[in-house]
Computed example of a mutant assay.
Amino acid sequence: MGHPQVNFRKTPELGSAREARLINSLVVIAYILPIALILGPFCIFFVVSFGRVEASAVVIDFNLSNYVRILADSTVRMVIGRTLVIGIATALVCTLVGFPAAYLMKILGPTRRSLLMVAFAVPLLMSYVIKIYTVRNLLGTNGVINHFLMASGLVSQPLEFFTLSYYGVFLTLTSVLLPFAVFPIFLSLDRIPASLVEAAADLGASRTRIFWTVIFPLSLSGVAVSLTFTFVLAIGDFITPELVGGPNGFTLGRIIFSQFGLGFNWPFGAALSIFMMMIVTVALALATRIRPPGKVTF
């Protein structure tokens, strides 16, 4: 007489409970890991910013000398001011140029739209340094633009206006960061219901009025993201000022880079980093105030 065979199988309830615990664990890890990777370095920088360098070593004695230096040093204040000007100018120009490009991308047919999207997306896949050198070869003293100006007789010698200055940094940043302005605006335009545009046209609104009363107000979220992206990336960039700005193109990011490099003044570099993060926080807070209207009036 054989013994009955017993099959030990997981009940559906037990399997569901284990899957739920696994999913909850992954969700917790997904939240904790980015927070730790962001807050961890920030806390370290915050503590180091209250220190000083003594005998080639960083001493943490919790003093405010680095923050006082940021406010008292006229050179640092000048660099911060110029960095903000470059960041604001880059954000405005990228957004002003990017909006028509995004709008054109919106109204084109599928094939042409895809080609235009690829044209803006390909630079994002390239190395950042390669893009800077490409723009530098166009704007440099031996670049294409200067060769054209000299060949046409408009100038007798190469212009240094495009490089080795803050203007060169601004032009390069505008060229490199333009895709970061185009795509957020395009996404906001693409989400506007076509029924609203058709309703405005049925009510007799002209194309100009439709744009200013329907399309532009509803795309303000994309404009805010465009301004924020380009501004934050511009003020934090140190590679472009290093390669294009020359001795006259110092920015806040470049000073921070030097403090952690040849300057070996980590506390002051950390204080400048905290100061830059405060600027970014203010920019994000201002961007959240740019919102589409609750209703559209023709």
Rank of each mutant, 00 (worst) to 15 (best):
M1D: 04
Q259P: 01
A199D: 02
F50L: 12
A181Q: 03
A119T: 15
D237I: 02
V68S: 14
V48L: 05
R209Y: 04
L173H: 10
A36R: 07
V79Y: 11
A287L: 06
A194R: 15
S152G: 13
R209T: 12
L189Q: 01
I88P: 03
D202F: 09
R254Q: 02
A200C: 11
I70C: 07
I35L: 15
D61P: 00
F260G: 00
V28E: 09
G109R: 13
L14P: 00
P4G: 08
V223C: 06
A270L: 10
L84H: 05
A57F: 12
R77M: 14
I132M: 12
P34Y: 08
L243R: 07
A224N: 01
V280F: 04
R77C: 10
L14D: 07
L26E: 04
Y133Q: 06
A102M: 06
N146I: 08
V169N: 00
A91L: 07
W212S: 13
I86C: 10
P241F: 05
N24P: 00
V53A: 01
N24H: 08
P241H: 11
S219N: 06
K295C: 03
I44Y: 14
F298P: 09
L138I: 15
R113C: 06
L116V: 03
L92P: 01
I86K: 02
V280T: 13
L149W: 09
V244R: 03
V144T: 12
R113N: 13
E13G: 03
A181D: 08
A283V: 15
E13W: 13
V129G: 12
S206F: 05
W266H: 10
R289T: 10
P100D: 03
V47S: 07
G15F: 06
L227D: 00
N146D: 05
L220N: 05
V53S: 02
R291H: 11
L14N: 03
L71T: 13
I255M: 14
G222N: 12
L115S: 02
R207S: 12
Y31H: 10
L284N: 11
A271M: 06
T230M: 00
S206Y: 09
S74V: 10
F238C: 06
A287W: 06
A201L: 12
Y67F: 15
G87S: 03
L39K: 11
S16Q: 07
V53Q: 08
F229H: 11
S226A: 13
G81N: 11
L243A: 04
G261D: 08
I60M: 02
P184H: 00
F99D: 01
N24L: 13
P267L: 05
F231T: 04
A287H: 03
A102S: 09
F148K: 01
H147V: 03
E198I: 13
V155S: 07
A17E: 11
R77L: 15
M78E: 14
G81Q: 12
N7Q: 12
V85R: 09
V282A: 11
T228I: 06
V6N: 08
F45K: 07
M117C: 01
V214A: 10
A57C: 06
F162N: 00
S127L: 10
P34T: 14
L138R: 00
V169A: 02
S74P: 10
T172Y: 00
T95N: 11
F268Q: 08
L164M: 10
F50I: 15
L124T: 09
R77I: 02
L227K: 07
I88H: 04
Y103N: 05
L33S: 00
V122A: 05
G109T: 00
A205M: 15
V282Q: 00
